[in-house]
Design a protein around this nucleic acid. Structure first.
Length: 486
RNA sequence: GGCGACGUAGCCAAGUGGUAAGGCAGAGGUCUGCAAAACCUUUAUUCAGCGGUUCAAAUCCGCUCGUCGCCUCCA
């Protein structure tokens, strides 16, 4: 089944047909670097990383561009507040962004351009828009004339009249139409500036994305993505600028991820109800956050809460435990037991890759894809429970299954480290608050073993209850007693 | 006010015309000296409500209610 994806422009799922067979040009709006990133940024980053990985996995040659907007009012304001240079602020948060994204396991895009490295391109486009009658200069500023572009608002499906009715529109500016937006802003004193045909100034917001996408992907390319909140005005304005300047279709497929909510309300800077990626990674490991984000379809709203993250961690733990057990069996030699569930397991192993692909081909349905994984894990657990040393044929099926899960993990950016070490890391985290030493626990386990041998179950249970009160859970196995932090 | 999205079990979440995936939590069972852990089984005659189209609807259409988003910087 071929890939279908939801296109914001048409409002429908469409068959994905790249402009050039086998190749994909994809541009995703990165961040304006004036502060630490919050979970909303994490979601956008992870979602498009997953899409990038899946396109690569599907055999496409992908040119993936994700920009940094490093010149903007908010950056300048912050620099002024701190008494530093805008460059210092931008560089600091670029570094922070890179660090956060790396921790979340994002693959590096093909190119990560910065707006300030493309000022000449920006000026060129602005000039071209003026030449074509789509823009005009007014007192050192340059504005895009929205009325010169008839299909303006085609992405957000509105019209100028509706936008004006009841909207907050500042009057008295140099704009000819209230909806006109700035392509170039003359610089005030104390502000960074570049020379331009209209005097010293700096780019407006939106134009940098037109410039950078054009530079690296050409005037027309396949996929443009970003958060839902960018549909208007950012992407709408990009379309107007790019199509106005190049006179050809800018983007074929527009993709937008849904918001992260807090108590069903959008998380945002202006509402002040946001958590930074750093905050969350204090409490949860990066893979849990990534798993949580991919457990919902990318266009659905996603409610963030500790409770939901804890549930995600439980689910992820279930998968890792199964994989860790699988790895143990694969490391051991084959036995001669044919587990009763062998045939069912063989069927699941053989179809897993196809079921995964089917889910992903349907507009990157990662929630369903993870459902396929869990479904397989259930059968896997049964087989593993039936025999710790299955026969050679079953062992081979297990190896195939392991390979399929590795492939899935590569696409979703999950299960990248060994399950045993992931589980050990979680145990270590929990052990931080422990008030009994490992030596003490081992001593008590030995004492309890002795008591059990003598059928002194009172003492045995006393030890177990005591350790449990210290958050230490004893695990009796045929091979002896181990423990874990509760 | 204009435009748009969503409403599936206690919770999270797939499913967009053919008779409700999966996870968490819960309940039974296997195992155990008893437990725990693990594993197995199980949990929605029903998809906000009301009408309509259809042989067939959670899925399409209309209305009502509720929640949220965009219209201003925002992933």
């Amino acid at each position: 089944m071929p890939l279908r994806l939801y296109n914001t422009l048409s409002g429908e799922k469409e068959l994905f047909v790249p402009r050039e067979p086998g190749k994909v040009g994809m541009y995703v709006c990165g961040v304006t670097v004036y502060d630490y990133c919050h979970i909303g940024h994490a979601r956008a980053g992870i979602v498009f990383d997953m899409i990038y990985r899946y396109l690569l996995h599907s055999g496409y040659g992908v040119t993936y561009v994700r920009n940094y907007t490093d010149i903007d009012d908010k950056i300048i304001n912050r620099a002024n507040r701190e008494g530093t240079d805008y460059r210092a602020v931008a560089d600091r948060y670029i570094a922070a962004f890179d660090e956060d994204m790396e921790r979340l396991g994002l693959k590096k895009p093909t190119v990560e351009p910065k707006a300030t490295d493309h000022i000449a391109d920006i000026i060129g486009i602005v000039q071209s828009l003026i030449d074509k009658g789509h823009a005009y200069e007014a007192g050192g500023d340059v504005y895009f004339a929205v009325e010169s572009f008839p299909s303006y608002l085609k992405l957000s499906k509105r019209n100028l009249e509706d936008m004006l009715a009841g909207a907050r529109v500042e009057v008295g500016e140099k704009k000819k139409h209230p909806m006109d937006f700035a392509l170039w802003k003359s610089s005030k004193p104390e502000e960074p500036w570049w020379e331009s045909p209209w005097g010293r100034g700096r780019p407006g917001w939106h134009i940098e994305c037109s410039a950078m996408s054009m530079r690296f992907l050409g005037p027309s390319f396949d996929i443009h993505g970003g958060g839902k909140d960018l549909v208007f005005p950012h992407h709408e304005n990009e379309i107007a600028q790019s199509e106005g300047a190049n006179c050809c279709r800018f983007v074929t497929y527009w993709m937008h991820n849904g918001f992260v909510n807090i108590n069903s309300e959008k998380m945002s800077k202006s509402l002040g109800n946001f958590f930074t990626i750093r905050d969350v990674l204090q409490l949860f490991d990066p893979e849990t956050l990534r798993f949580f984000i991919l457990s919902a379809h990318y266009r659905s709203p996603l409610d963030y809460s500790d409770q939901n993250l804890l549930e995600a961690r439980s689910g992820l733990t279930r998968i890792h435990e199964a994989l860790a057990n699988l790895d143990v069996v694969l490391a051991a030699p084959a036995g001669d037991v044919v587990p009763p569930s062998a045939a069912e397991l063989a069927e699941k192993a053989a179809t897993l890759a196809d079921r995964f692909r089917e889910a992903m081909d349907d507009d990157f349905n990662t929630a369903q894809a993870l459902g396929c994984v869990f479904d397989t894990v259930r059968t896997l657990n049964r087989t593993l429970a039936e025999s710790a040393m299955p026969d050679a044929a079953t062992r081979e099926v297990l190896a195939v299954l392991r390979g399929a899960i590795d492939d899935i993990g590569e696409v979703l950016g999950l299960f990248r480290q060994s399950s045993a070490s992931w589980l050990a890391a979680r145990e270590a985290e929990k052990a931080q608050g422990l008030t009994v030493s490992a030596e003490e626990i081992e001593r008590l386990i030995a004492e309890r073993a002795e008591a059990r041998k003598n059928k002194n179950f009172a003492r045995s249970d006393e030890i177990r209850d005591y350790l449990l009160s210290k958050n230490v859970q004893l695990l009796d196995t045929p091979g002896g007693t181990t423990w874990q932090v509760k």
